[in-house]
Design a protein around this nucleic acid. Structure first.
Length: 576
DNA sequence: GCCGTTTTCGGCCCGACTGTTTTCAGTCG
């Protein structure tokens, strides 16, 4: 097992212990250790070989043994014991909003419910009402929750799908006979939520059969659900459905264009081709009048043949990009354009790096600045800073700042907007910061009026504030969008404030429809990763991936800041 | 199950919300 598998397994053990009704602090120890393992920079085997696992925070003698077992053998005694106590379906029940380990335990032990379908059946027949602590409302909420998760089943966040696809593409590329291999579909278009992965492989006709046979043997594949001459349908180890298509080199550019989609973009493109006497499919162009068939060796050639500038996959949604491509396409932001990120946490709250380490991580990415924004005291679950800690941090970071050359630290704070609309820190302290991210972390089910009042109160007359990850919910967790989002954009428009697009892969808050809505209302947006470790900084780019779908150009992002210091920095960067 | 010591065991984040029950338990962030 690699460190991510080990971390996932430790969390699984923690969850099973919770179900068993174990001491909650013992449970927490597993989750803490999982987090630590996930955040380690060195390889897990390094700690094992050097016998230094116990130097990691939250890992003692006992967990060190279990981690070693998992890393080397892929299993540990306590795990198999726990697994034998609960059928796998019981764990599924925990995914239903409002159902935690205590209630799931009761449902399993008293009603024998061990799957979502059994739970649905029981709710519909009002069998839960017989249980102590359960009533009509809980039954209703569970049914609603089941409907919600059924809808999002089989959906994965972009970051997870991309990581999975990259590994598979690399494995396939190494097979003998494979000429080219790339990810297509919605992953290539950088959609924020992915249903399945499409992978395209270029092989000579005489190699197709042999290559297919080798692909289905790859370790990443859990199950082969279909295998024809040119298409293999699979389910990968992490549950993502993946279609692999094999095409001959001459068809590859056409297949890449076709399977990248979107469907709507392709329909529009074929319509355009037809208008000039050409028919376009996944294999080639053909002539439907007496037009000469253009030669295409790359995907770009296909667009050029139709009198268009090549359209980047991210924009292929038939949202006006084809018309735009007649004259030119705006240059999209690339990873190299990123110079820094705000909303990064350090060990002063719930981050795993010290300010010094965070700066080093940012410098390693050739960034020019970093914005630190740790939690304030009311975010107790995230180890929010007391006023005293905050003062200590300000002193520490300002001092660190003076030691750095060619690199700037902006010191901000992620300040909670409390339920009454006031801010968690007094204005006198907030003035000490370069910028303030104000975030809502509580009472999500507000009415529009309540939300508006709360946010307006928090933002009023405060100069350099950013409204932090305004929805505070996983995209996958809920059907539709939290009620507050429109409110947030409307308020930001009224008060001319910046909204942060939170690109932490687990909290992908906005999709391009809302970015467009914001843009229509003149609301400025910025990208931030909500990073808690060095790896988290990479998430900035995922946010850019989303943002570009809203036709956000670099200057939009660069212009989003009102704070003079930040603006000066951006002016400098722009000159580069 | 870990940590930090008062070195052998007590403390470990906490407040809000919801629903059930009538004072509290479970869930969530």
């Amino acid at each position: 097992m690699d460190k991510y598998d080990v971390a996932d397994t430790l969390e699984l053990i923690g969850t099973l212990l919770e179900l068993k009704g174990e001491n909650p602090f013992r449970v927490r120890a597993y989750f803490t250790a999982a987090q630590t393992i996930r955040n380690t920079t060195a390889d897990l085997m390094f700690y094992i070989n050097s016998n230094s696992l116990t130097t990691l925070k939250g890992v003692g003698k006992d967990l060190a043994e279990k981690i070693t077992d998992l890393a080397i053998h892929g299993d540990t005694k306590v795990l198999s014991e726990l697994k034998s106590m609960f059928p796998p379906g019981v764990l599924e029940l925990l995914k239903i909003p409002g159902l935690g380990p205590k209630r799931v335990k009761i449902l399993y032990e008293q009603l024998g419910i061990a799957s979502i379908s059994e739970l649905k059946y029981a709710c519909e027949r009002h069998q839960l009402q017989k249980l102590q602590g359960f009533g009509t409302k809980i039954e209703e909420n569970i049914l609603q929750g089941i409907e919600q998760i059924t809808k999002s089943t089989g959906k994965f966040l972009y970051s997870i799908a991309k990581h999975t696809a990259d590994i598979l593409v690399e494995s396939i590329s190494q097979l003998k006979g494979v000429i080219l291999c790339e990810v297509a579909g919605s992953v290539r278009r950088k959609k924020e939520v992915i249903g399945d992965i499409d992978i395209l492989v270029s092989v000579e006709e005489y190699d197709i059969q042999k290559t297919s046979a080798e692909i289905i043997q790859l370790t990443q594949i859990e199950q082969v659900t279909g295998c024809g001459e040119t298409k293999i349908s699979t389910i990968l180890k992490n549950g993502i459905q993946c279609d692999i298509r094999l095409v001959q080199p001459k068809s590859y550019p056409f297949a890449l264009q076709y399977f990248t989609g979107s469907k709507e973009h392709n329909v529009a493109l074929r319509t355009r081709a037809k208008a000039v006497g050409l028919s376009l499919n996944e294999y080639n162009f053909s002539s439907i009048s007496k037009v000469q068939v253009p030669r295409c060796t790359t995907e770009d050639d296909i667009y050029k043949s139709l009198g268009l500038h090549p359209i980047p996959p991210e924009l292929r949604e038939n949202m006006g990009e084809i018309e735009e491509a007649e004259t030119g396409i705006p240059k999209l932001i690339s990873e190299q354009d990123i110079r820094g990120a705000f909303h990064c946490h350090t060990t002063y709250s719930d981050g795993s790096l010290t300010p010094e380490e965070l700066c080093e991580a940012a410098k390693a990415k050739h960034w020019k600045f970093i914005g630190i924004a740790d939690h304030t005291k009311s975010a107790a679950y995230a180890n929010g800073m007391s006023i005293e800690t905050a003062k200590r941090q300000i002193e520490h970071v300002r001092k660190l700042s003076t030691t750095l050359t060619n690199f700037t630290i902006f010191l901000g704070v992620e300040c909670d907007i409390l339920p009454d609309g006031s801010l968690d820190f007094p204005d006198s302290l907030l003035q000490e910061y370069d910028y303030v991210v104000v975030s809502i972390h509580s009472k999500f089910k507000m009415t529009e009026t309540e939300a508006t009042e709360r946010i307006i109160n928090a933002l009023q007359n405060r100069y350099s504030t950013i409204l932090g990850h305004p929805t505070g919910r996983l995209l996958l967790e809920r059907e539709g969008y939290p009620i507050n989002l429109k409110v947030v954009i409307d308020v930001a428009a009224k008060l001319q404030k910046v909204i942060e697009i939170n690109s932490h892969p687990k909290r992908l808050d906005l999709d391009w429809r809302w970015i467009r809505y914001a843009k229509q209302h003149g609301v400025k947006l910025c990208i931030s990763p909500d990073a808690h470790n060095a790896e988290g900084l990479n998430d900035t780019y995922y946010g850019v991936g989303i943002a570009r779908k809203g036709w956000l150009e670099p200057r939009d992002i660069l212009n989003t800041w009102s704070n003079t210091a930040i603006k000066t920095l951006f002016e400098t960067i722009r000159k580069d």
